Simulated scan of single mutants.
Amino acid sequence: MKKTIIFLALLSLGSVSNAQDLLGILEDEAPKTKNHVSSTFKGTRVLNGHSVENRKKGTLEFIISHRFGRLNLGIDELFGLDQSNIRFAFEHALTDNFMLGIGRSSFEKTYDGFFKYKLIRQSTGKNSFPATISLFGSTAYKTIKDYDPNDKPDFNDRLYYTSQVLIGSKLSPGVSVQLSPTYIHNNTVRINNDPHDIFALGFGNRIKLSNRVTLNAEYYYTFNPLESLDTKNSLAFGVDIETGGHVFQLILSNSITMIEKGFITETTGGFFDGDIHFGFNISRAFQTGGRKRKNQSRE
């Protein structure tokens, strides 16, 4: 409507061509909007690994993760349900783009801490960018006493580090994908032939089934695996269910661990051999600060 009024006013002052030229100049100088794309994934995890998503500023999230034993253990082990590995964690968003987390896993009695920083957000419109890029870093400390008492390792010997670049794109309202180049460093190794530095590439996707349910898949390919273990690449399929403040994930995976150094480098089960672990992630978010005004992001 405004453009029409301006065009008629210019037309009354001169020729049609001059009016069109002047209107074009006004359009070129007018600001264009930039819309950030949100909800690439429903939660902060694809399945085992992190997604590009962060919680909103001031949000404290409590996460409980379970992985049971292998389904092919049979009825004597209730198809793996008699065995359990659990991780619980607290994750806090200091800003919309930066979050910290700490957790503890029963497997190898491991403590871990991480940060995740959203470097670039996917956007449309002016100066659009086709993907969201986040930086992830974590440190894990294994405390299980699985060593010879006469050869006790020191603190640094039991540390593991992970660095990732998470690259996610929402291709359409119903489909998202993610690539996760990964570097893992082990301060100590089991045998001399084991690499201290391991490189891997993760692939993840999300397919929207409804407003509250998505189907996810995740795969990590390890380029230089450990020699001391007969390892397999981590594979997982799952369903995300959103219910109010909860995101509930049901997962089938050949990995029993839930931190990067474990499921990326130490998975020993073959998914298609029946070495499948049923598990779940459940989270509850609490708002610890004032709510931010709703922005113009496109869901």
Rank of each mutant, 00 (worst) to 15 (best):
G113K: 09
Q83S: 14
K109C: 00
Y117K: 02
G103W: 04
Y117R: 03
I191Y: 03
R158M: 11
N156Q: 13
P153L: 02
R158K: 12
S106G: 08
S163R: 11
L171V: 13
S176T: 14
N193Y: 02
R87E: 13
N193T: 13
K126H: 15
F115V: 15
Y117T: 08
T182R: 00
N156E: 14
G168K: 09
H185K: 10
D76P: 13
H92W: 14
N72G: 01
L159F: 05
V177N: 08
A89T: 13
T132W: 02
G74A: 02
I75E: 12
G113P: 13
F88C: 14
T110E: 10
K170H: 06
G103T: 06
Q122C: 10
Q164Y: 02
F98Q: 04
T110N: 06
A140K: 14
Y147I: 00
V189Y: 10
P130S: 03
L81H: 08
F98A: 12
D76W: 12
R158H: 06
V177Y: 04
A131Q: 02
G101F: 03
G174R: 15
A89W: 05
S176W: 07
K142T: 13
Q164F: 00
I191F: 08
I86K: 06
T188G: 09
D148P: 06
K118F: 01
D157N: 11
N127W: 09
G101Y: 04
T182F: 00
G113Y: 02
K170V: 07
K116M: 07
T143C: 01
I133G: 04
L81S: 10
K116E: 05
T188Y: 01
P149A: 00
D96L: 03
H92K: 14
A93L: 10
F129L: 11
E77P: 03
Y161P: 07
F115K: 11
F155A: 07
G137L: 04
G80Q: 07
D157W: 01
S163N: 14
Y160H: 09
F79M: 15
A131T: 12
T162D: 09
L78C: 08
K126E: 14
F79H: 12
E91K: 13
R87N: 10
P181Q: 00
L81K: 06
N156I: 14
L71K: 03
F90I: 15
V177M: 10
G168S: 08
F88G: 15
H92Y: 15
G103R: 05
Y183A: 13
S180V: 15
I102H: 05
F90A: 15
T139G: 12
M99Y: 01
K126D: 14
A140R: 11
N150S: 01
G101W: 05
N85G: 12
F98C: 04
R87L: 15
S84N: 15
L73R: 15
T188D: 10
F79N: 07
N72L: 03
V165N: 05
E77V: 08
F107W: 06
N150R: 06
I184V: 15
P153D: 04
G113V: 09
